[in-house]
Design a binder for these strands. Structure first.
Lengths: 292, 292
DNA sequence: CCGGTTATGTGCATTATTCCACAGTACCTG
DNA sequence: CAGGTACTGTGGAATAATGCACATAACCGG
């Protein structure tokens, strides 16, 4: 059964009993209706209607089609109702992705947002892999670094995570603090294993500090933090974590460039939906209280 | 939801995941598919797919539509199966109409035909009203009189019911038999109340016999027969009934014109269906044995 | 019996739809 | 990194669908 429109036409004819009545309901010319009926009957090889001067009377085949098409019409109507309302209510899945380092902040927000919307299922994806909005893998993404400029992505600025250069007091006790860049070669640094890392402060590190001074290298930010706390050397620690570790000593005043900016990114197709808008609004409100 | 074809297109896109794949399945150009999707999304005001270079990924709305359209596609497929097979098997209703006088012959045939086809429901309509084939009121009609020449009706000759002019022997005892037409005025006749009755022998009666001689008039053929058997006068009795009533005496040799011809009539749309053809075949076979 | 109304059905002009060809982009593979 | 592949997207030509006008037939009411 190809050409569902002809089924719909036949359905209306069976309902109305006349070609003219069906044409009026369908908003087309009655000649069109006649041709649709002729076409579908020819294709099926079955007479759906008996034609007479007072209208079209459904045969048994036509009555059968009427039943099926009636059900179809109902289901389509319900579907339209759901689809139209779908943009308005916050339900189904909400898929959010971010860097793993933001999980301590994001998770409580997501939990409360889920509690505010009982019908909602929250999927919070973190990982090395970049979850792609254009493939429908996520509704909202938190991206760090330069301004994302993918086509079809709606970008707005999110939190800024200040980062400073710190060392554990045990390290300072042993090595002292560098007076200036000229002392960097005589110190131990904790850095990223990948010299091409994208974070601005890591670029600063590889540009400013001699490679041989970076004695401890790791991939995971959490690991680097542990190394610094263990006194392995001087390294970058987010300001928010510094407050939890009073044993950390600031090595030098932070450069503005070190501040990691992050961005809220949504796909243009989903950005205007109420579900995404509600979450973005709540997320931005909540992030006001974050201490970064 | 108008335009069911676009639903079908969207359904195939959701299934295939690509516009090109859907276009191939649908047998249309991929540009057509793109425009259908754009059209239905614009109409609904909801994005059904997220577009990317590798294809179209359904949104939640698109996934919802996929479910509904999947069900619709299944139902339509089943419908087509039923409709195509419908012309071939003998099932559903078989509506037959005839003069009430043929009921003693038709009823046994219909009963046996119903027994031969367990799925069949027989509706045998008799009555004064003319059941109209073109309105779908009956599949097969037995019509008497002149050849029906309605358009869209398929006509074939059926049984001929010979009729003779008889009187009860008690009447003959009292009044004797007319020697010829000149005696008709002195006799009592049983005729139809309507002088314009269509049956040829009734026309002969009103043309040949003076009106005042038709002393007993009725509308129902069965009533007329009862009157003749009661000795009310001379009248027409079908030959088949004469054999059951030995007390009837033939008044004059039957004229060829008196033979009532009957016709099997079907609507052209239904005539070629197996159900109607099977019944016509069985009816014509059975009628060979009828004694009329 | 006879207009008036309501239907279906058909040729022709118009409109909308579809197809075609080509451009552009992302992704994969050697 | 370059070539190949598979996909989307778009402007203009070809085609199919639609609308229109008119003919025709049946029925209804007076």
């Amino acid at each position: 059964m190809e050409n569902w429109d002809e089924v719909r036409t036949a359905y209306q004819v069976a309902r109305a009993g006349t070609v003219s009545g069906a044409a009026e309901v369908l908003g087309v010319h009655h000649a069109t209706v006649i041709r649709h009926i002729d076409s579908i009957e020819a294709r099926l090889g079955v007479k759906l209607f008996q034609r007479h001067a007072r209208g079209y009377t459904p045969t048994e085949a036509g009555a059968d089609l009427l039943m099926v098409a009636q059900a179809t019409d109902d289901q389509f109507s319900q579907l339209v109702g759901r689809l139209k309302g779908q943009g308005d209510d916050v339900t189904g899945e909400l898929v959010v992705t971010s860097l793993a380092s933001l999980a301590p902040f994001m998770a409580p927000v997501l939990m409360r947002f889920q509690q505010m919307h009982p019908g909602l299922i929250v999927r919070y994806l973190t990982g090395d892999r970049l979850f792609r909005l254009e493939y429908g893998e996520a509704h909202v993404a938190v991206r760090a670094g330069a301004v994302p400029n993918q086509p079809d992505n709606v970008v707005q600025p999110f939190v800024q995570q200040r980062t400073g250069l710190y060392a554990h007091k045990d390290y300072v006790k042993r090595h002292g603090l560098p007076k200036g860049p000229e002392d960097f070669g005589k110190h131990h640094f904790v850095g990223h294993d990948n010299p091409n890392a994208r974070a601005p402060f890591l670029k600063w590190l590889s540009d400013t500090v001699p490679p041989e001074a970076i004695r401890f290298r790791a991939i995971d930010p959490g690991t680097m933090e542990q190394a610094i706390l263990a006194g392995a050397g001087i390294g970058f620690v987010p300001e928010c974590l510094v407050q939890q570790h009073p044993d950390l000593v600031q090595v030098m005043d932070p450069l503005p460039d070190w501040t990691a900016r992050s961005w809220l990114v949504t796909h243009v197709d989903l950005h205007r939906t109420n579900k995404v808008q509600s979450f973005l609004k709540y997320l931005k409100e909540s992030s006001q209280d974050w201490v970064l």
